[in-house]
């Protein structure tokens, strides 16, 4: 049985696409056959972060409109076996997305894939609702600041009222992923702490990804950050994937690196 996981946030620019690429890649690296779907029709971002933008021929909307079939459209990842991307179209309008169409495509993917990751567009309107409607699980991507947490709360409300599972009286399994976490700024009271966010949203924590320059570098190179073994963000995503698969892993990168005595003396 394929698991459908939506990566969503409400607020824009918090790290959904970065997370979809990292988690999707991470799952594939453990041997799970995984496809990442870009639901952000009109923007197209996932293919850039996955580094496959030059290989896009057909897109999600073509499949929905029966202009291409899945095997023509899915892009196989160059680095990882078992990993595929279903790109969004940059030009077509969002109205091509219908629940019936999306359901048909998901059902077809579910026949061969273990994990289907849906990279949601920002907002709480139709596009985001379409991306989450069929989800079995949801990764709620949140930055440690009030407006992002408030939007995550809203999307959780929608998830548990306007998704297929909710309409059938069941629950969508919820996971909290806090990203762009900067422990130094948390210590200075400029950002919410992990426990602040957990307390407000009251869902299980699956990962804390530190704010890291390696993320920008990774997107510029089109290599998901989880491939970067040197990177704290990449390692934090590896931990998150393990927790998603049910492993218990201690949280890392929650505190600021201690300044050495010399640095403190010279005030650096």
């Amino acid at each position: 049985m394929a698991k459908i996981i939506v990566v969503t946030s409400g607020k824009g620019g918090v790290g959904k696409t970065t997370t979809s690429a990292a988690i999707g890649t991470g799952l594939a690296l453990t041997g799970k056959k995984t496809v990442i779907i870009d639901f952000d029709v009109g923007l197209r971002n996932l293919d850039l972060i996955m580094g496959c933008e030059r290989r896009v021929v057909y897109d999600f909307v073509n499949v929905l409109n029966n202009e291409a079939n899945l095997s023509q459209t899915l892009i196989k990842d160059k680095r990882v076996n078992n990993l595929f991307v279903l790109p969004a179209s940059q030009t077509r309008d969002k109205d091509s997305l219908t629940l019936e169409g999306v359901e048909r495509v998901l059902n077809e993917l579910a026949e061969t894939f273990d994990y289907i990751i849906c990279d949601s567009p920002a907002g709480i309107e139709k596009g985001a609702q379409m991306a989450l409607y069929f989800a079995d699980e949801a990764i709620i991507v949140t930055n440690p600041e009030v407006s992002s947490v408030r939007d995550s709360d809203r999307i959780l409300g929608i998830l548990q009222s306007k998704s297929r599972h909710a309409e059938n009286g069941a629950m969508v399994k919820e996971h909290l992923l806090i990203t762009r976490y900067n422990p130094a700024r948390v210590a200075d009271g400029e950002m919410l702490s992990v426990s602040d966010v957990e307390e407000i949203l009251a869902i299980p924590l699956i990962g804390v990804i530190p704010e890291s320059e390696s993320v920008l570098k990774a997107s510029n190179q089109g290599v998901p950050v989880i491939h970067d073994e040197e990177s704290d963000a990449g390692n934090a995503y590896i931990d998150a994937v393990k927790r998603l698969l049910g492993e218990e892993v201690d949280f890392r990168f929650l505190t600021a690196p201690k300044k050495g005595i010399l640095k403190r003396l010279i005030g650096a």
Binding site: D153, R154, I158, A202
Partner: peptide
């Protein structure tokens, strides 16, 4: 379950009991 931001719950002619939290904006 928690009442999330943007949600509204009305108990007509009766009491309302919420087992979880009521979020800001709810």
């Amino acid at each position: 379950k928690p009442v999330r931001s943007g949600q509204q719950i009305y108990a007509k002619d009766r009491d309302l009991i919420v087992i979880g939290s009521v979020s800001g904006g709810a």
